[in-house]
């Protein structure tokens, strides 16, 4: 009832394994204006099938999974032909179990002309965490890319000044990655310590 699976152990010590599952590709028709967006993009961009790895429609939102080599091309078409004038920034997500595609950058796009929203997603391996910068396409992505670099260590190639923005300049590590070590706070009582939040008793 409350999501207890397997042993039914509800003590909170049931072994914290958190794997994120991503929705599978969607089939046409996508519904709403999503078909128009896909059609327009296919018409305006001949390399569509090569550049777009997956099209996902979930909870009334359209996500295009783009190969990183093609990201700038697709972004330019989306901006100039499909009139997605605004990019609402970048949000990084870290999936350590998703081997070869550990780091994901998510770009929510907004078209004010057509009053539409879509989302671009680019995934890259942790060992080669490079994504081309979109600052040339949407200047407002400047700080957002710096933030994603700061928090996840994704390197946005050809960004005009990719430095940390929220953490101090000399900070080591990228705090919002799942493998970032969290500090426990030592308590001065018979040598006991409070474990870091990710090792504490917790429910899945």
């Amino acid at each position: 009832m409350f999501g207890a699976h397997g042993t039914g152990d509800t003590s909170g010590y049931g072994g914290l394994v958190r794997t994120a599952v991503s929705a599978g590709s969607s089939q046409r028709p996508y519904g709403g204006y999503f078909d128009d967006v896909a059609d327009d993009l296919e018409r305006a961009y001949p390399g569509f099938s090569d550049a777009i790895e997956r099209v996902v429609v979930d909870r009334g939102e359209l996500t295009l999974h783009v190969k990183r080599e093609k990201l700038v091309e697709v972004a330019l078409i989306l901006r100039d032909v499909l009139k997605f004038e605004m990019c609402m920034g970048v949000s990084g997500v870290h999936y350590p179990e998703n081997l070869g595609r550990e780091l994901v950058a998510v770009y929510p796009l907004l078209s004010m002309t057509n009053n539409r929203r879509i989302r671009l997603e680019v995934s890259v391996p942790d060992s080669d965490a490079h994504i081309p910068s979109l600052v040339e396409v949407w200047a407002g992505n400047n700080w957002h890319e710096r933030e994603t670099f700061d928090m996840f260590g994704i390197i946005f190639d050809s960004h005009p000044g990719l430095t940390r923005i929220l953490m101090p300049d000399d900070w080591a590590g990228h705090p919002q990655r799942k493998d970032y070590a969290l500090g426990g706070v030592p308590i001065e009582y018979k040598g006991a310590t409070v474990p870091a939040p990710d090792n504490r008793r917790s429910y899945k």
Binding site: R18, T19, M88, G89, V106, Y203, K204
Partner: peptide, 16 residues
């Protein structure tokens, strides 16, 4: 921007 992995906590939260 909210990402859930099906658990009782957010997998990732980002505010624009």
């Amino acid at each position: 921007h909210v990402v859930s992995d099906g658990g009782t906590k957010p997998y990732r939260m980002h505010f624009r």
